[in-house]
Simulated scan of single mutants.
Amino acid sequence: MEGKEEDVRVGANKFSERQPIGTAAQGDDKDYKEPPPAPLFEPGELSSWSFYRAGIAEFIATFLFLYVSVLTVMGVVRADSKCSTVGIQGIAWAFGGMIFALVYCTAGISGGHINPAVTFGLFLARKLSLTRAVFYMVMQCLGAICGAGVVKGFEKSKYDTLGGGANVVNAGYTKGDGLGAEIVGTFVLVYTVFSATDAKRNARDSHVPILAPLPIGFAVFLVHLATIPVTGTGINPARSLGAAIIYNKDHAWDDHVSHQLGFSTSFFPFPFLLVNSQ
């Protein structure tokens, strides 16, 4: 494309991310301003470099997220004694900390979604167009697959024996238990995103500075602490899909259904989510 810099400047204004998750979510003005609903289709985005730049940012962020998180999980599984590793708390910190860092880094480019569940929730709330939502989700899944693939390339001899970071329902729990854990966990995450980026919060709590990536990353950390013993914690369809595709074992695919159903059914109480966005 010709004149990319100019296109980025114009595109960022004309086709901006309507629901930024990072510091851009809070403006200097303390008055409440609700952005207009995004159109269902926005064909003009497809000719804007800023649109593709945002998709690349989602790809890279999800790639890095899978790379670090899967390696952390494998490192814990590898040890004979969990006391010699970071343990479950360390895994939770790896996931939550990476989300905090990556949302902070990409919020000004793509909105910092890094999760199809977040993208889908914001689409339902009319915060971004269907065009952008589909593009983001595709790039997130591709990034997750590549991230898990690079881990397998580095740890090829141990990847399969260590589980490849794939989500499975652990012994002692049923698929129903896993489904329930994923529904609640995904809802907690998406609800936190909506609360942290609520346009009214800036006007209502103007005396409390909010760095949106912080509560979002902390929510990811807490959900992982609660659900790692049950399912290994999905709450991110791209994360679960990427690990399942690269690991590619029957039991991982069987339990993968619970993770994806957990994502979709977590939006049944979605009207409650919209309390903060109306």
Results as ranks from 00 to 15, higher is better:
Met1Tyr: 09
Met1Pro: 14
Glu2Phe: 11
Gly3Pro: 03
Asp7Arg: 07
Val8Thr: 13
Val10Gly: 02
Gly11Phe: 02
Ala12Phe: 11
Ala12Met: 14
Arg18Ala: 11
Gln19Asn: 14
Ile21Trp: 03
Thr23Met: 13
Ala24Asp: 13
Ala24Arg: 12
Ala24Gly: 14
Ala24Leu: 15
Lys30Gly: 08
Pro36Ser: 12
Pro36Lys: 14
Ala38His: 08
Ala38Val: 10
Pro39Arg: 10
Leu40Phe: 15
Pro43Asp: 10
Gly44His: 02
Leu46Trp: 15
Ser48Trp: 05
Ser50Arg: 08
Ala54Asp: 02
Ala54Glu: 02
Ile56Gln: 05
Glu58Pro: 02
Thr62Cys: 12
Leu64Asn: 08
Phe65Glu: 02
Ser69Val: 15
Thr72His: 07
Val76Asp: 04
Val76Arg: 04
Val77Asp: 08
Ala79Thr: 07
Ala79Pro: 03
Ser81Glu: 14
Cys83Met: 13
Cys83Ala: 14
Cys83Trp: 09
Cys83Arg: 13
Ser84Ile: 09
Thr85Asn: 05
Val86Gly: 04
Gly87Cys: 09
Gly87Val: 05
Gly87Lys: 03
Ile91His: 00
Ala92Gly: 06
Trp93Asn: 00
Phe95His: 10
Cys105Ile: 09
Gly108Asn: 10
Gly108His: 12
Gly112Ser: 09
His113Ser: 05
Pro116Asp: 03
Pro116Met: 05
Ala117Pro: 01
Val118His: 03
Thr119Leu: 06
Leu122Lys: 02
Phe123His: 08
Ser129Lys: 04
Val134Arg: 03
Val134Trp: 03
Phe135Ala: 15
Val138Lys: 08
Val138Arg: 07
Gln140Arg: 08
Cys141Met: 14
Leu142Lys: 03
Cys146Lys: 04
Ala148Leu: 05
Gly149Gln: 09
Lys158Tyr: 10
Tyr159Trp: 11
Leu162Trp: 09
Leu162Ala: 10
Asn167Lys: 05
Val168Ala: 04
Gly180Asn: 07
Glu182Ala: 00
Ile183Ala: 08
Gly185Tyr: 01
Gly185Glu: 02
Thr186His: 08
Val188Met: 14
Leu189His: 08
Val190Leu: 10
Val190Met: 10
Thr197Gln: 06
Asp198Lys: 07
Ala199Glu: 10
Asn202Met: 06
Ala203Pro: 01
Ala203Arg: 10
Val208Thr: 14
Val208Leu: 15
Ile210Pro: 03
Ile216Cys: 08
Val220Gly: 01
Phe221His: 11
Val223Trp: 00
Leu225Lys: 01
Thr227Ser: 11
Ile228Val: 14
Gly234Thr: 00
Gly234Lys: 00
Pro237Gly: 01
Ala243Thr: 15
Ala244Asp: 05
Ala244Asn: 04
Lys249Thr: 10
His256Pro: 00
Val257Glu: 06
His259Thr: 01
His259Met: 14
Gly262Thr: 02
Gly262Asp: 01
Phe263Gly: 01
Phe268Gly: 06
Phe268Ile: 15
Pro269Arg: 07
Phe272Asn: 06
Leu273His: 09
Asn276Gly: 13
Ser277Val: 11
Gln278Asn: 11
